[in-house]
C-alpha cells in the first residue's frame, strides 16, 4: 500500500489498468464497509424487536391460558398453577408513583440550585457528586436499603407515620400497619433516590439552554430569581422537563435489584403503603430460578413482556418530549 502511494504520477499514468483495478478495489471495499455498518445499525433495530417478540413467544402459554384474567386477578399460586399479575402490576405502579412524587420536586430544586442559586465554583463539583449517585450499582442501593434504611424506617419513620397520619379519614388507610420496615413506601423512597440524578441532570441541561436574553429581559422588568425560574425558564423548557420526568419514570418502573431487597415479595393486595408488596421486576428476579413448571416460567416471561411494553411507551414519550425542545433549538 505504502509503495503505491510513493509512485510518481507518471508511473501511474503509464499503468492505466493498475489505476482502474485500484479504483475498482476501493469501490468494492467501500461498498463492503457500507454494508457492514448498515448491518450493524439494523442489528440494533432488530435486537429491540427481537426482545419484544421473544418475550411474547415465551409468555404465549400464560396469555393463552389465562387470557385477560392474567391482568385482573390476584392469584399467584405455583402449586395450583393459577397466575394473575394484578399484585405485581399494582406494586410497580404504586412504588413508581411514590418515587416520582418525591423525586420530581427534589430534582427541580437541585436543577434550580445548580443553574441559578449556587455560586459558579460550587456548580460543577455538586453536579458531579449528584451524578455519582447514578453510577452506584443498584445492588448497592438494595443492600443499603435492606441493612441500613429498613431498620431506620421500622424504628422511627413508620411509627411516626402510623401515629400521625394513620387516624386521618381518607389518607389514613395508606399509613396503617405493623412497622415492618420493608414495604412499598420504603421501596418508593429508595427508587426516588435512584432516579433523582437522572431527572435532575436532564433538567439542569435543559435549563442551561434557555437564552440569556430571555432571562435578562425578565430580570430587567424586576422579576425575582424564583419568578424567572417559574415563569420564564420552566415554560420555555416544559416539554424537555416532562421528557426528563418520563425518563426517570421509565427507570423507576424497570428497576429490579433495589426494589427486590426492600419490597418483601408478598403476593397480597393491600391499600397500606407500609405493607410488603411486589413489583413486576422483583417477582421475576425472586422467582425465576424457582419456577418449576412451564406455565410458571411462561407467566414470569409474560410479566417481563408487560414491563417491556410499559417502559417502551414511557421511554418513547420521554424521547419525543426531549426531541421537541432540541428541534426548537434548531439542532
Amino acid at each position: 500500500m505504502s509503495t503505491e502511494h510513493a509512485l510518481p504520477a507518471g508511473a501511474i499514468a503509464q499503468r492505466p489498468d493498475a489505476l482502474a483495478s485500484r479504483s475498482q478495489r476501493d469501490l468494492s471495499a467501500d461498498r463492503a464497509f457500507r454494508w457492514l455498518v448498515t448491518g450493524a445499525g439494523i442489528f440494533v433495530l432488530v435486537s429491540l424487536f427481537a426482545a419484544a417478540l421473544s418475550m411474547l413467544w415465551g409468555g404465549r402459554a400464560a396469555f393463552s391460558t389465562f387470557g385477560i384474567d392474567f391482568l385482573t386477578t390476584t392469584d399467584w399460586d405455583a402449586v395450583g398453577k393459577k397466575f394473575g399479575a394484578l399484585v405485581p402490576i399494582y406494586g410497580t405502579l404504586v412504588t413508581a408513583a411514590i418515587a416520582m412524587i418525591i423525586a420530581v420536586p427534589v430534582s427541580f430544586g437541585i436543577a434550580l440550585f445548580l443553574t441559578e442559586v449556587a455560586p459558579p465554583w460550587l456548580r460543577t463539583p455538586v453536579a458531579s457528586a449528584i451524578e455519582l449517585l447514578a453510577g452506584i450499582p443498584s445492588i448497592i442501593y438494595g443492600m443499603w436499603g435492606l441493612f441500613v434504611f429498613v431498620p431506620v424506617m421500622s424504628t422511627t419513620v413508620i411509627p411516626f407515620l402510623t401515629t400521625h397520619l394513620g387516624p386521618l379519614p381518607i389518607f389514613g388507610p395508606l399509613f396503617q400497619g405493623p412497622p415492618l420496615g420493608i414495604g412499598m413506601l420504603t421501596a418508593g423512597i429508595v427508587l426516588a433516590i435512584m432516579v433523582i440524578p437522572f431527572i435532575s441532570s436532564v433538567m439542569r441541561e435543559v435549563f442551561l439552554t434557555v437564552p440569556t436574553r430571555l432571562k435578562e429581559s425578565a430580570y430587567a422588568l424586576g422579576s425575582t430569581t424564583w419568578e424567572v425560574a417559574w415563569n420564564v425558564v420552566l415554560p420555555y423548557t416544559r416539554s424537555a422537563v416532562i421528557g426528563g420526568i418520563f425518563l426517570g419514570l421509565g427507570r423507576a418502573l424497570g428497576e429490579t435489584m433495589a426494589v427486590t431487597f426492600v419490597l418483601g415479595n408478598a403476593h397480597h393486595l393491600t391499600a397500606s403503603l407500609l405493607m410488603p408488596g411486589n413489583s413486576i421486576a422483583a417477582t421475576i428476579a425472586n422467582e425465576f430460578s424457582e419456577a418449576d413448571s412451564d406455565i410458571y416460567v411462561s407467566s414470569l416471561i409474560a410479566l417481563g413482556f408487560l414491563l417491556f411494553i410499559v417502559t417502551f411507551v414511557v421511554l418513547a414519550i420521554a424521547k419525543l418530549m426531549l426531541m421537541r425542545l432540541s428541534r426548537r433549538e434548531g439542532n
Binding site: L112, F113, V126, W144, I193, I196, T225, A229
Partner: peptide, 29 residues
C-alpha cells in the same frame, strides 16, 4: 421577596437532600 427566598432556600435544601443520600450510602458501603 419572601417567596423568592423560600423557593431558593428549598432548592438548596433539595440539593443537600440529594447529597445526604449519596454520603450515607457510600459511607455505609
Amino acid at each position: 421577596r419572601l417567596m423568592n427566598h423560600l423557593a431558593l432556600g428549598l432548592a438548596s435544601a433539595a440539593t443537600l437532600f440529594g447529597l445526604f443520600w449519596l454520603v450515607w450510602i457510600l459511607w455505609t458501603t
